[in-house]
């Protein structure tokens, strides 16, 4: 039978079941239940829960654990993710897998503690300095939070890069029924690049992001970007809901996609051909799904809990071939289905 779990706790349990035994964190609302859950579970299964002195230290502990070859993760909320940016950039530059969870709250600055999607730009464009991307997955239900955790670990390992789950305070705090996967069996395969002691059996491994020779650095960044192209080709994910004949295509992810879905259903009841494209991967951005839906749409409507961040990627994905409109709230405010419906009606 399904169990009723808070999103934050479901993320933690899913990580454990995906074979993660090393969690490094720091308390911040609204993600703290995740860390608290880990502090309860990890000691009982021989894992590591460590409350670091800061988010900066936590992400660098993840860097160290990942460099040693184990599955490692950290979680935080918006202001804390800013602090983790340094470590994320270094992990990207060192080709290290890791899972970072952002349970977003309102910003900028200390902002608020209510749900928000104002870190889209940060997650998809600039978690830290330098030429790099991270994988960004955006669940919209507690069940999907569970499902995406193991996918995020697998993708991070496969492509040797950090992966982020971009959630928000609503998803983190809410309870929904979930079915949890079986505990992962054997530990993931040995990582031949890891700094875990060579035992005299191989040359020493160096986990490093420093390349003082520009042509060497360029070569490595280009190699990484070639990998990113592969990811864009193979890993785009989106849900297309009533989108194949929609005149008005609503585009929303995470919590706001739930609001949008409600509005789309109401619009259909009223005879309006509305549909929803829900990006599940925010990077790589699901341009293919967007283009399919946009090809016959009259208008697109992007719904976000921000002043409009993903809307840029929507316009780029469809090369501005159709008008793209915006509906959003910010600062921790959540749009209502009625508000979205009103805009759908205006655009139909």
């Amino acid at each position: 039978m399904k169990v009723l779990m808070k999103g934050n706790e479901a993320l933690a349990e899913a990580a454990i079941r995906a074979g993660c035994r090393h969690f490094f964190g720091y308390p911040i609302t609204p993600q703290t239940e995740l860390a608290a859950y880990m502090s309860k579970r990890m000691p009982k299964i021989g894992g590591t829960y460590l409350q670091a002195e800061s988010e900066i230290a936590a992400v660098n502990m993840v860097l160290g654990a990942s460099a040693a070859g184990v599955r490692a993760m950290t979680s935080s909320s918006s202001p804390g993710i800013s602090l983790k940016g340094e470590g994320i950039s270094y992990m990207a530059g060192s080709d290290l897998p890791a899972l970072i969870i952002n349970v977003q709250r309102g910003g900028p600055g200390l902002g608020g503690i209510q749900p928000s999607q104002a870190d889209y730009w940060q997650a998809t464009k600039a978690t830290g300095h330098g030429d790099f991307q991270i994988l960004v997955l955006a669940p919209s239900t507690v069940q999907e939070m569970v499902d995406l955790v193991s996918d995020a670990f697998d993708l991070a390992d496969q492509y040797r890069m950090p992966a982020m789950i971009l959630a928000d305070g609503m998803l983190g705090q809410m309870m929904e029924p979930v079915s949890l996967p079986e505990e992962a069996g054997a530990a993931p395969a040995q990582k031949d690049w890891a700094a875990c002691g060579h035992g005299g059996k191989r040359p020493h491994n160096i986990v490093n992001s420093l390349y003082l020779t520009p042509d060497k650095l360029e070569e490595l960044v280009k190699e990484r970007f070639a990998r990113y192209e592969q990811i864009k080709q193979h890993e785009q994910r989106a849900e297309e809901y009533l989108a194949d004949d929609a005149d008005v295509v609503v585009v929303a992810y995470g919590a706001s996609s739930r609001v949008a879905r409600g509005a789309v259903n109401k619009a259909r009841e009223m005879g309006i051909k509305a549909g929803l494209v829900r990006p599940i991967t925010l990077w790589p951005f699901p341009a293919d799904a967007l283009n399919r839906a946009a090809s016959h749409a009259k208008n697109l409507l992007v719904v976000e809990m921000s002043m409009g961040q993903m809307i840029d990627d929507v316009k780029l994905a469809i090369n501005c071939q159709k008008p793209v409109h915006f509906c959003g709230r910010t600062g921790g405010m959540i749009p209502t289905p009625a508000q979205v419906l009103e805009q759908i009606q205006a655009l139909a």
Partner: peptide
Amino acid sequence: RAQAVATGLKRA
């Protein structure tokens, strides 16, 4: 961050 990284390495 060396000692944070070292902490991660040692705990792992």
